[in-house]
């Protein structure tokens, strides 16, 4: 019991470190680019939302409900911290709407069994996809689609290879890339 506790503590410490490091890198990047007209591609708070979304996606691919729930809690925080100052009024309105919706799905995912998590992940994926359409991202993303889950469901991935978050090990490779987002 205590060993497990120590381990957990150690892991959370290294996580915190890694995150801090990441934040540093991102803020550095922002400074470098601030003179260029690239702030649309370069919103560290949007990247943080994406990072938590992908952690969640990977957890669902791995049938790991607990990890998905933790990612849900983290995602709620990163959504809350989303900085939309640099966008037009219209985009801000849209983003606020997206974030409010995504927040609710993240909350449900943080406290539900895996089937229910996957239900919410579907709508969450739509929200995040719409967010990326406005914010852009520094990475290439792949919008993937599985025709079988709930009359067809999409999600985002950083990898071209299909790993299905709606079925996990039940049907790991069901789906195809339907769009590349650059």
């Amino acid at each position: 019991m205590s060993i497990a506790g120590m381990l957990l503590l150690a892991i959370s410490f290294t996580n915190a470190h890694a995150k801090e490091k990441m934040n540093h890198n991102q803020s550095d990047m922002k400074m470098n680019h601030s003179t260029m007209k690239m702030d649309k591609m370069n919103n560290p708070t949007a990247e943080a939302v994406l990072a938590d979304y992908f952690t969640m996606k990977d957890a669902l691919v791995g049938d790991d409900s607990k990890k998905a729930a933790q990612a849900g809690t983290k995602l709620m925080a990163s959504l809350k911290a989303f900085d939309m100052k640099s966008y037009s009024k219209e985009d801000q309105k849209e983003l606020a709407d997206i974030i409010e919706d995504a927040m609710e799905h993240a909350e449900h995912i943080s406290e539900s069994p895996i089937d229910h998590q996957r239900e919410h992940f579907k709508t969450l994926s739509k929200d995040i996809t719409d967010m990326v359409a406005i914010t852009g991202t520094k990475n290439t993303l792949y919008e993937q689609f599985c025709p079988m889950y709930d009359k067809g469901s999409a999600w985002l991935s950083t990898s071209k290879e299909v790993r299905n978050p709606y079925y996990g090990s039940g049907m790991l490779k069901c789906g195809k890339v339907q769009k590349t987002i650059q």
């Binding site: 709407d97 997206i98 409010e100 919706d101 609710e104 799905h105 709508t123």
Partner: peptide, 15 residues
């Protein structure tokens, strides 16, 4: 609610 939020709620109702 916005139309996004409505759709989201309607989907949850169905589920």
């Amino acid at each position: 609610l916005s139309s996004r939020r409505k759709k989201s709620k309607l989907r949850s109702i169905v589920k």
